[in-house]
């Protein structure tokens, strides 16, 4: 069954070399594309101790510990692999040179000396959820998360409204200067904001928007991509519909909001997906505009933490996972629409 499913070839009924290569490539693809993300996700559940383990284990294991009478801290457990205590499980008190001073948890009074080569750490499966809870307690994670959500949602709403209004005007009205305006907007496709960083910063600064989310939101809401995408779609909406609405006492604003916008929904969905992706992942411009840490987006916070030597990998990994989670969920739900939308419009 499975075999016939996999070996479905171009109707030739033969599983030849190219099919082997194809499946080899696809499996390599899964490992290479998903593997790193999966590895980070796994690692994010490890305790700091397990993270510093080398070579690392795939699943989150933590060294087993035990409370032994007479000791304040929990002691790590070891299995003894050689020597007279072979097979026993002992707790280590301290290491002295090549020997370890150990104790049997059942019999805390007696101290045992074991060569360090004769013992292996006893481990247990343990998910370190505290990596995540720590984020909320210590790292002000919710603050950054909220900043990111706010910028993404507000910028996307404004982008959709502004772009669709412009697209409506360009698609459905004949007026002097229409071609000029359209070409002007398309021309800005050629001018990525990266080459205007300094003067855009001046404008944002003059408007008093530095270190506010609005400084990130406003400069990029008038996307030429969005205008172009929506205009092309709106051209396919028949003019008769708009005329019918006008005969039905609809003002131009009502024609736009009640007729054109709902009918352009497929194109708007594509723009929403793009806009969410752009804004959630945006890095360079927020990096320039937002310098106070309480205004940081998730991306900036991640970047700041990874540069900070005090930060442990455990927190960083958990934060990475939380940052990629929303996009991953959206992707899992809308995979088809996203890939189709991108293939059609050729924009990212």
């Amino acid at each position: 069954m499975v075999w016939s499913f996999i070996s479905r070839t171009r109707g030739r009924g033969r599983f030849d070399v190219t099919d082997w290569l194809t499946w080899g490539y696809l499996i390599l693809g899964i490992v290479l594309m998903f593997g790193p993300v999966l590895w980070v996700a796994m690692s994010s559940f490890k305790t700091d101790a397990a993270l510093s383990e080398y070579p690392p284990s795939f699943l989150p294991f933590a060294p087993k510990t035990v409370m032994v009478e007479g000791y304040d801290d929990p002691l790590p457990l070891y299995e003894i692999t050689a020597g007279e205590h072979r097979g026993e499980v002992l707790a280590q008190i301290r290491r002295i040179g090549l020997n370890a001073q150990m104790v049997d948890p059942q019999n805390p009074a007696e101290k045992i000396n074991v060569k360090i080569g004769d013992r292996a750490p006893a481990r247990e499966f343990a998910m370190a959820f505290e990596n995540y809870s720590k984020l909320f307690e210590r790292f002000n994670f919710m603050r950054y998360f909220w900043n990111s959500v706010f910028i993404t949602v507000v910028a996307t709403i404004i982008t959709v409204i502004f772009n669709s209004m412009a697209a409506f005007a360009l698609a459905k009205y004949r007026f002097r200067g229409r071609t000029t305006v359209f070409l002007l907007i398309i021309a800005t496709l050629m001018i990525p904001p990266t080459i205007n960083l300094v003067p855009i910063y001046l404008v944002v600064n003059e408007l008093g928007l530095v270190n506010t989310p609005w400084g990130v939101i406003w400069p990029a809401v008038a996307t030429p991509t969005g205008v172009f995408l929506l205009r092309q779609y709106m051209l396919t909406i028949p003019d008769d519909l708009l005329d019918a609405a006008r005969m039905d006492h609809a003002s131009e604003w009502r024609v736009y909001w009640r007729i054109v916008l709902p009918l352009a929904a497929p194109a708007i969905a594509v723009l929403i997906i793009f806009s969410v992706m752009w804004r959630w992942n945006e890095f360079l411009w927020p990096l320039i505009v937002l310098t106070r840490s309480e205004e940081f987006t998730l991306q900036l916070a991640l970047n700041a933490f990874q540069g900070d030597l005090q930060t442990s990998w455990s927190g960083l990994l958990a934060m990475t996972v939380l940052t990629l989670l929303p996009i991953t969920i959206v992707f899992a739900l809308l995979q088809k629409n996203i890939t189709a939308g991108i293939a059609q419009s050729g924009v990212k």
Partner: peptide
């Protein structure tokens, strides 16, 4: 979807994954 998935990840996340 497999090959497309990383496109959606933010650059910072991508960098941290590989740094790790």
């Amino acid at each position: 979807g497999v090959f497309f998935y990383p496109v959606l990840l933010s650059p910072v996340v991508v960098a941290l994954i590989w740094k790790w």
